[in-house]
Simulated assay, not measured.
Amino acid sequence: MSEVLILSAHPDIETSRTNRAMLRAATNLLGVEIADLYSLYPDGEIDVDRECTRLLDARTIVLQFPLQWYSTPSRLKEWQDTILTHMIYLDYDHQGRHLSGRRFMLAVTAGASEATYAEDGRNRYSIDEILRPLQATAYRCGFTWEQPFVVFETRGAPDDVVRAAASRYAARIAGLLSKLEMAA
């Protein structure tokens, strides 16, 4: 059983300095499992049994992804449609109900600045408003919503900024692990 399951969904992780650094920082934490959905399922055929077991074995679920067109990358959306539909709508009694109470956090990277995510900014909506459908998903699954971890201005970020973001991410994941220890 993993304490924290990070479902990473970057379509080209090799080009993402920030997402790679965040994953490296989290890898060093005891009790963290990382599943890269693009490398696990290059053809998009998601293994339902494997992913349902992975979710049922985790106490905290983190979705890590770059914001793309105000949403998740396609593989993560496919994962949601396949796995959460199966567990919550098709097999709630045996699987879905067991997800209730698990902590759920988003770890999101955005190339643009935070200022663009405002009513008067280029994107017209705050990051919280843009992520609201995922918060609704968490609520529907019975997850305990954690404030998202968001890194802005990742495109062309200097190395020290990338390292600082990775360090903050590792600290945030460590904080989730501490919450689990206190609850035990």
Rank of each mutant, 00 (worst) to 15 (best):
D49Y: 07
D49I: 10
R50E: 15
E51M: 09
E51N: 14
E51P: 04
C52Q: 13
C52M: 12
C52W: 02
T53V: 14
T53A: 14
T53N: 14
R54Y: 03
R54W: 07
R54E: 08
R54F: 06
L55K: 02
L55F: 11
L56E: 14
L56D: 08
L56H: 07
L56W: 01
L56G: 03
D57E: 15
D57M: 07
A58P: 09
A58N: 05
A58M: 14
R59M: 10
R59S: 12
R59Y: 09
T60E: 11
T60D: 03
T60I: 15
T60C: 13
I61A: 03
I61R: 00
I61K: 00
I61N: 00
I61V: 15
I61E: 02
I61T: 12
V62M: 04
V62L: 06
L63G: 00
L63T: 04
L63R: 05
L63V: 01
L63W: 09
L63N: 01
Q64W: 02
Q64D: 06
P66I: 07
P66G: 10
L67D: 03
L67S: 05
Q68K: 07
Q68I: 10
Q68C: 03
Q68A: 07
W69K: 05
W69C: 07
W69V: 05
W69Q: 08
W69L: 12
Y70H: 11
S71Q: 08
S71D: 10
S71C: 11
S71Y: 00
T72D: 00
T72N: 06
T72W: 01
T72S: 15
P73G: 12
P73T: 11
P73E: 13
P73V: 09
P73M: 10
S74C: 13
R75N: 07
R75D: 00
L76N: 02
L76E: 02
L76C: 02
L76F: 01
L76D: 00
K77T: 04
K77R: 14
K77Q: 13
E78S: 11
E78F: 00
W79I: 10
W79Y: 15
W79R: 04
W79G: 05
W79M: 07
Q80P: 01
Q80Y: 03
Q80A: 04
Q80E: 15
D81P: 04
D81M: 07
D81A: 12
D81T: 00
D81K: 05
T82N: 10
T82C: 12
T82S: 13
T82M: 09
T82Q: 12
I83M: 07
I83K: 04
I83V: 15
I83S: 08
I83W: 08
I83E: 07
L84Q: 04
T85K: 05
T85R: 11
H86Y: 14
H86D: 13
H86K: 13
H86C: 01
M87Y: 02
M87S: 02
M87V: 10
M87T: 10
I88V: 10
I88C: 06
I88Q: 08
